[in-house]
């Protein structure tokens, strides 16, 4: 597990160093969400109605922006070859990198989300469900994103291809994430939706790192 912790610590610290881009995703998230009241207008009912969807869609797009950081730099500077030869299965290397990606991208989004939801006049009853849903959902975004990032790692300017590959995978997270918030607000309860998100997270944890590792091996060839 030592090697796992080393890779996690290196990726997390690199993200906060010069040019690491740790703050970019959350800055994009905040800016995108604040555009909506400006574009739609200040009617509180409309903003309240769209708040859950807007926060989630912006979170998906912000995560997408940060995915090229996962493997691209390591692929281009040759570090990925050495990581593949490290005394750790490549799937666990991927998992360590996903964990570092979540810490530097998903967690800041999770912290910013309730504040932005209030800005959009979300019903206070939905805030708890929003935080819980994002707590379960953002790691899924990192892991599914890693599969796409691994598949496109050898492609120059693969950003658009990555978006096309990954966004469909994000749809279940979006649907159940929004339903959890609306369930909590309407009084029907967020629990079933959160359970589905939890199941998705377990599935992603079990399969995602292996799928991403297989794609990376293909690209190292």
């Amino acid at each position: 597990m030592n090697a796992f912790a080393r890779i996690f610590a290196r990726d997390a610290s690199l993200a906060f160093r010069h040019g690491g881009g740790a703050g970019l995703a959350v800055a994009f998230f905040v800016l995108t969400v604040t555009l909506f009241p400006l574009g739609i207008g200040p009617e509180t009912q409309i903003l309240e109605r769209v708040s859950a969807g807007v926060v989630w869609v912006a979170a998906l797009l912000a995560t997408l922006l940060s995915l090229d950081r996962l493997f691209q730099a390591d692929y281009e500077d040759g570090s990925l070859d050495l990581l593949a030869l490290a005394p750790l299965p490549l799937a666990l290397v991927v998992l360590a990198k996903c964990a570092a990606h979540w810490l530097t991208t998903g967690l800041p989004l999770l912290i910013a989300a309730p504040v932005l939801a209030l800005l959009l006049n979300m019903d206070a009853g939905g805030l708890g469900a929003l935080v819980l849903a994002m707590l379960l959902g953002t790691p899924i975004l990192s892991i599914f994103g890693a599969i796409g990032a691994a598949l496109t790692v050898g492609v120059r300017r693969g950003g658009v291809l990555l978006t096309i590959l990954v966004l469909p995978l994000y749809i279940p997270v979006l649907i159940f994430g929004v339903c959890a918030i609306e369930g909590a607000i309407s009084g029907l309860g967020a629990r079933p939706h959160l359970l589905v998100l939890g199941a998705l997270l377990l599935g992603a944890l079990a399969l995602g790192p292996w799928a991403a590792a297989a794609s990376l091996r293909l690209n190292l060839d």
């Binding site: 690199l14 160093r17 010069h18 040019g19 690491g20 730099a73 281009e76 500077d77 040759g78 570090s79 070859d81 050495l82």
Partner: peptide, 10 residues
């Protein structure tokens, strides 16, 4: 390899 596997920020 012919790539140096060096992180410029470190």
């Amino acid at each position: 390899g012919h790539l140096d596997a060096v992180k410029p920020a470190l």
